[in-house]
């Protein structure tokens, strides 16, 4: 097991009182596996990843039973040791490549910097050769000239390729891709996702793919985990989850997508009424109950626990399709 997380809860101290961003997140990741995390904005997708990377601000309180990456306990590790993991064993790609790159240095300098910090045994010429190799690997044409470019001289797709080159520079075991293609056009998106898949095979990396686009996870993830209001509501193998969603939220999300064969031209789309709850004033019981058509009194008072069976993990008293 590469990554094991059990009962991770993150609370922020805010001026208006404590805000619980995530509650009881538990999941694990095998080596080489791709986990897709989907959910709406504010559901805790990014926060969970920042917690794994140890990048949360001081206002956050993290409690977890277990947070183990590659045999290292991430809760007790010292900041100095964390630096050796971050960027070396765990790589991360961010949503907006244009603002993730430093505008005042060349991209060659930025790739070199990563190598300098994490691979001290390499000398300058070895690093230069590696940077060139990386640029070539991520499919940038004329890599030697591109190394001398600044971020503003590159297109969005190119910048994302450079970000990927930096993230994989030290051959990480885990790559966290937080909305890697949201800012890009569809034809470029297809190219980048293909690149990530190829690199994953070559380096034997595990990947956490965070996105709100169900189409992207469906095509790329081995397993999908759906989050709602900071909790995991359902998790299963991609095919199982997409073809037979059990949680009413997953089901609602999938059926609200246009472009399925079942929805006729201009037919009203089934939608989930209401909005995501305010995380400072969470509803009692199941977090989804105010928007759920199957909710009864039990759902309004008791939070269902995360039940595991062979095929899936589910947090619901009334799964879709179950006899009532």
């Amino acid at each position: 097991m590469l990554l094991e997380i059990e009962d991770l809860s993150i609370t922020f101290d805010t001026a208006k009182g404590p805000l619980s961003a995530t509650r009881q997140i538990s999941f694990s990741l095998e080596e080489g596996e791709t986990l897709g995390i989907v959910g709406e904005s504010g559901c805790g997708k990014s926060i969970t990843n920042l917690a794994i990377m140890g990048l949360l601000p001081d206002t956050a309180t993290i409690t977890a039973k277990k947070m183990i990456f590659d045999g290292v306990d991430l809760q007790t590790i010292k900041e100095n040791d964390f630096r050796k993991i971050r960027g070396a064993k765990i790589g991360m790609i961010f949503q907006d490549p244009m603002s993730a790159l430093n505008p005042s240095f060349t991209v060659g300098f930025q790739i070199d910097e990563t190598l300098k910090i994490h691979c001290p045994e390499m000398d300058k010429s070895a690093r230069g050769a590696r940077a060139l190799e990386l640029m070539h690997q991520v499919g940038i044409p004329a890599p030697a000239e591109r190394l001398k470019n600044y971020a503003h001289e590159l297109s969005g797709g190119m910048s994302q390729r450079v970000m990927i080159a930096m993230a994989i520079a030290c051959k990480p075991k885990l790559l966290i891709a937080d909305e890697p293609t949201t800012a890009l056009d569809v034809t470029i998106q297809a190219q980048i996702m293909k690149l990530l898949k190829d690199l994953q095979k070559e380096y034997q990396m595990a990947m956490i793919l965070v996105t709100h686009d169900l189409g992207v996870v469906a095509q790329n993830a081995d397993r999908i985990q759906v989050m709602y209001a900071g909790e995991i509501v359902e998790s299963a193998k991609s095919k199982v989850l997409l073809q037979d969603p059990k949680h009413p939220y997953t089901d609602g999300l999938l059926s609200s997508l246009p472009g399925k064969k079942a929805t006729a031209f201009r037919a009203p789309l089934p939608s989930i009424a209401g909005m995501v709850p305010d995380l400072r004033a969470r509803p009692n019981g199941c977090q989804f109950n105010p928007r759920c058509e199957f909710a009864d009194d039990k759902c309004k008072t008791t939070l269902p626990s995360l039940e595991h069976d062979q095929a899936r993990t589910l947090r619901c008293f009334h799964p879709v399709g179950a006899s009532v």
Binding site: L214, G215, V216, A218, Q219, N220, L254, L257
Partner: peptide
């Protein structure tokens, strides 16, 4: 290139 839940990549 348009991603879909119905078709494989």
């Amino acid at each position: 290139s348009s991603p879909s839940i119905l078709k494989e990549a």
